[in-house]
Design a protein around this nucleic acid. Structure first.
Lengths: 210, 210
DNA sequence: ACCTATATGTAACAAATGTTACTGTAAAAG
DNA sequence: CTTTTACAGTAACATTTGTTACATATAGGT
């Protein structure tokens, strides 16, 4: 497992810490579409992403959803950090965007390691920083962009995360992520197709221009 | 200064740390309306709020603005934390909402203290957590609420922060914070007045129902 | 008291987004 | 092969939000 972590996180962590992770953490493989974090649930493990991608959504009581951001190799979920350190409930939902490999750290080790290892402390600070920046970029999108530009940004983020130019999603799924309706997405996608930016097929969207 | 900090932060910090803050930090009084952080500027101090309130806005290149959240006594600005620890540029703007008293910590001490003091580490983690939660609540508002409810929420947040039932703002100022136009705010405020939720006067808005 | 800045009220219209309803069509299931 | 289900296309309309234009009102300076 040490080598796997090094592949994804470089030499960020000290050898000592790596060995401790190796001893204590568990390795997990998650299939695409699996719901890793459910809203309202308590979290006992903090996931380090070794391979793949996870999408993180905000949910409210009425079943409304909104994509917050994607997590990649080398990332961790700052909301999980918050939950772990503050022992709060999850207010988000996390779904495996692709098949994903995770290292699960038990929360009991979290505080201990922030005291013990400088690299771990920096990793946690850095993760918070990244997530805060991402959250604010999400605010930028919904506050300052129209739906057509938000859709385009979404499609581009998605092909980047999945490392492909074809998106396997239905219009309805996209509508959920952007918190709008299927009809609106179909309408805007059709416009993008007219402008030769995408090519539409059943269950997939090909991105022609990046 | 130690007593001032204790009044605002309780016994959260160790005596030792308090003394170090007292020795190193500078005390500052800021008048209402003063621009504490400008977008694009580098930040050399981290402000701890002793008294008063600060509003934090997101800005983009076109001069668009959006209120992110208010900071109160006991808070600090996590974006500043990010900037300090990561040495990034500010992407936000901070303005004194009321007359405000601050303790300014030089960033050089930041990392040192996170290693040295457990309470400081926890304070920093806690601040990040709070700001992340607030940012996500802002996302909730703009994603899930219509402008009338956003306005109402804004007014309520404002009277809470200012500890008064009269808001001294023009419609234009509110429009900037919510990233909409003055006419829209006037229209919606008039509706709230019809519903006996507010009373409108020149340069101030009285909130009748909380 | 008069002038001027700024603030507010409001109508009329434009644009963006959301909703409903119905169509056709491809894939999956029987 | 037929039936069913899920997906996508599109028109017509409703609602929300944004824009322009102008009228009116109030405070402050002279």
């Amino acid at each position: 497992m040490i080598q796997e972590i090094k592949n994804s996180y470089g030499d960020f962590f000290e050898e000592e810490l790596l060995e401790e992770i190796n001893r204590i953490a568990t390795f997990k493989e998650i299939p695409e579409g699996f719901e890793i974090i459910k809203p309202g649930s308590y979290i006992r493990f903090m996931p380090l992403i070794i391979h793949g991608a996870i999408k993180v959504l905000r949910t409210d009581n009425d079943g409304d959803e909104l994509l917050l951001y994607f997590l990649e190799k080398g990332d961790t979920c700052a909301m999980t950090l918050s939950c772990c350190l503050g022992h709060h409930k999850s207010e988000i939902k996390a779904i495996a965007e692709t098949d994903t490999k995770l290292v699960m750290i038990p929360i009991s080790k979290m505080e201990e390691w922030t005291t013990k290892y400088k690299s771990w402390r920096n990793f946690v600070f850095d993760s918070y920083h990244k997530r805060l920046i991402e959250a604010i970029e999400t605010i930028d999108s919904i506050a300052f962009l129209n739906m057509d530009d938000r859709l385009l940004k979404y499609l581009r983020d998605k092909i980047k995360i999945n490392n492909t130019s074809v998106i396997h999603s239905t219009h309805q799924q996209i509508a959920y992520d952007l918190h709008t309706s299927r009809v609106v997405i179909s309408r805007l996608l059709k416009k993008l197709e007219k402008d030769a930016i995408v090519k539409l097929n059943r269950n997939n969207i090909e991105i022609l221009q990046t």
